[in-house]
């Protein structure tokens, strides 16, 4: 998914050291924080129905030596604008989505309030432990990232998928079948890296149309500018769920990716607590229930 590779980490590291960015960030974050605080209640009520099924003794997990920026609050960094993982509700200020549900339920288990901080994807990791405690924003677990941060156990599996218009009669049984097509994808994502690799190695001949926003890719597919969209299966599920103009033609089951909640390298106490919370949520069926709610029955 948004595995913008190791290089981003380097870039992010640099950004932190660049004072200009350091100075610009807090203002943004403060703005987002107040927004999030204002809507906090709404998010909490939203998910309370779901957590009711869990036992009422929610806050039983031992926080151990977990460290937090603010007492009693789990500050969460997310790039809000990546449905169905995180997006703003119709009111334009309330964050909603699969990630939001999961992290809110986790915080509930830990007996913490949740504070979602909207942040740009670029530099999202640089903010961990600085502006927020964890990043929960469809973050792919990669070996490179594990070197600089901790991840919770994965809470969702993701594959690369090919999306075609619903009325297309093409059959795709591997990425090699995309040969000769024009495909759209989101810039600097796993899809981008994968398809660029297929192209640059000469495996297949394709025209790649890279966009900043995944929604642009689907508009292009709908308008007929491109033949196919290559995207995370989870995102594809979400789009197909909300529109019958598209269909998933192929999912690459071999190279699965896993998403986890990222936190600072030294915050092992928090990792332990979150893993415990995720385990309980899994057992209670909350994770599956949420998945079905956000990604529909199209998913496994």
């Amino acid at each position: 998914m948004k595995k913008r590779m190791m290089a981003i980490l380097c870039a992010a590291g640099m950004l932190v050291s660049m004072t200009a960015c350091g100075a610009a960030k807090p203002a943004d974050v403060a703005g987002a924080a107040t927004d999030a605080a204002a809507t906090d209640a709404a998010v909490a009520t939203d998910t309370s129905a779901a957590t009711d099924t869990a036992d009422a003794a929610g806050a039983t997990i031992d926080l151990g030596d977990a460290k937090f920026l603010t007492e009693g609050v789990l500050n969460v960094g997310a790039e809000v604008g990546y449905p169905p993982f995180e997006d703003f509700a119709e009111d334009g200020t309330t964050p909603i989505g699969y990630d939001i549900d999961i992290i809110t339920a986790v915080a509930d288990k830990l007996g913490l309030d949740v504070n979602i901080i909207n942040t740009a994807w670029d530099g999202i990791f640089a903010g961990i432990g600085v502006n927020y405690d964890v990043a929960c924003s469809a973050v792919t677990i990669t070996p490179e990232r594990k070197e600089t941060m901790l991840f919770s156990d994965p809470y969702i599996n993701n594959y690369q998928a090919v999306v075609l218009p619903a009325d297309s009669d093409k059959t795709i049984s591997s990425f090699n079948d995309l040969d000769g097509m024009t495909i759209a994808l989101q810039k600097e994502t796993t899809s981008d890296i994968l398809m660029s690799d297929y192209k640059s190695t000469g495996t297949i001949d394709i025209q790649i149309v890279a966009n900043e926003k995944i929604t642009s890719c689907f508009t292009q597919l709908q308008n007929g500018e491109v033949d196919a969209v290559v995207v995370d299966s989870t995102v594809a599920d979400g789009f197909i769920n909300s529109s019958d103009a598209f269909k998933i033609a192929y999912e690459d089951q071999e190279e699965a990716e896993q998403f986890g909640i990222a936190m600072a390298k030294e915050n092992t106490g928090l990792q332990k607590a979150i893993n415990q919370a995720l385990k309980e949520l899994e057992e209670e069926g909350f994770i599956e229930e949420s998945y079905n709610y956000w990604f529909g029955s199209a998913a496994e």
Binding site: R4, M5, I8, A11, M14, D122, A184, E188, V209, S216
Partner: peptide, 21 residues
């Protein structure tokens, strides 16, 4: 033009920045 999938000088330099750091 980055917004409609075209790559001008600025867009390419930004891409290189994010992908290679």
């Amino acid at each position: 033009v980055f917004a409609i999938s075209l790559m001008d000088i600025t867009t390419i330099s930004k891409n290189i920045m994010t992908s290679e750091g």
